[in-house]
Design a protein around this nucleic acid. Sequence first.
RNA 1: GCUGGAGUCGUCUAGUGGCAAUGACAAGAGACUGUAAAUCUCUCGCCUUCGGGCUUCGUAGGUUCGAGUCCUACCUCCAGCA
Length: 455
Amino acid sequence: MLSIDSTRAGDGSGGVPKRFCESKIFGEEKTRQDPPEEDLTVAEGPAQGFFDIRKKVGLARVGTIHTAHGDIETPAFVGAATRATVKALTMKEMSELGSQAILANTYHLVLRPGTELIQQAGGLAEFCSWHKPTFTDSGGFQIFSLPNVKITENGVKFKSHIDGANFEITPESSMQAQWEIGADIHMAFDHLAKSESYEDMKEAMERTHRWLDRCVEEHGRLMEALRTNSRNNDDTLRAGDGSGGAPNDFALSKIIGEEKTRQDPPEGYRQYLYAVVQGGKFNDLRAESAEYCASKNPDGFGIGGVFTADGMDNMLKTVNSILPENKPRHLLGMGQEPIDLFVGAEFGCDTFDCVGPTRMARNGSLYTKNGRINIKNAKYTHDFSPLEPDCNCECCKNYTRAYLHHLFKTDEITAKVLASIHNEYFIVHTVDNIRASLLDDTFADYKKSFLSRYY
RNA sequence: GCUGGAGUCGUCUAGUGGCAAUGACAAGAGACUGUAAAUCUCUCGCCUUCGGGCUUCGUAGGUUCGAGUCCUACCUCCAGCA
């Protein structure tokens, strides 16, 4: 059934992630990424060497997040792959356009295809053939975005939007599901307030904190299971061997009919937990939340409940001055507007994810340096120039606005593919350029020239 | 030529005496931020000071307080028969 049985939480054995296999990036045989020195064993407690900072500019930082599936040079834009796919794009296209990581959604994957299946496939990265770092969001956002959710102290009851089946996500079950999905970086199960009011924000924040305690505890239990299994990882271990139901199947993955030989998890393999800061637009709540999250000593932080760049600078100043400097911060859901990325990076965020670029693309709204344009507009019918002359994406290098216009007007699938390639490339590379400008001390100029031209 | 049927906003269409007249498509524009989104919204006869005004259902007449709708003639198209 679809439900995540919260009673499974805390049995101390479930949800051990799948084995890691050597990554193959589209025909090119890659050697396994060497983990950073500090990461040679499965660590207890917060990660050591998970995040290195190369340079600081005020609150802004340039750094590297190390995961078993590779590194992320930050600041970085993480592609939104809600249902283990970036809509309209193949993972090859995502890789070629320069994406470093993707973020999938626990709620959607629990409903379909189910975490067990992803586990059988060898984990999220293997399942969707993305051999780079992965994140999962906890499902907490769905409390906010779906109708008919019932919030209790224990967790959240949903009706599946697919078949109406009742199911519940709790902090523990979200952690379990995320471990089964097997992304490198997990979000704590949080609660977004239904309204902007101080009371609602405070209540949601406090519940998020109480849930964080449970997430940290459950994550620790799952981590311990991984450590134990890693230590005892002899030939007798296999999935479903009755050892408490732990799938513990690092070894026995099958890749499309091909029996693979046993493979140990990579040294340093582990999954990281980000606590999520809430508090809305209220700086006192944000400060309180940042302090609470920091006190729980997670591996990193998500900053949630942000919907506009308006006032984001002050909020981030508050939050990121409190959060420990040496841990990465992910600005959840922001990045549709370039200004989000400039402000986010300037005030200390390291990674971003957003459905905006690909959704805009599918709806014909395309980024250019002079702002977004709607390629379906009649004025592009005879426009034989590239969408963005300076852009090096596959779309801009090969096709004209008139062609894109035609593809959209005729509702061809390729319209959405090319548009998604461009928009995702545009945002990924904008953040890449922000990173470069921080390194060569031109951030202020880059920000000013980009934003004044764009808006 | 005869008999029967049909002509409604760019297209197809609803409409059988009562509000420029239904729906779909096309067209024009807008929205979208941890994706129930290849989705959603608006405009779509002309004019407007947004109150309303004007002109419209093949054409021309007629009946009626009132006609896309009923009657007459004509035009065009379709089917069958010559």
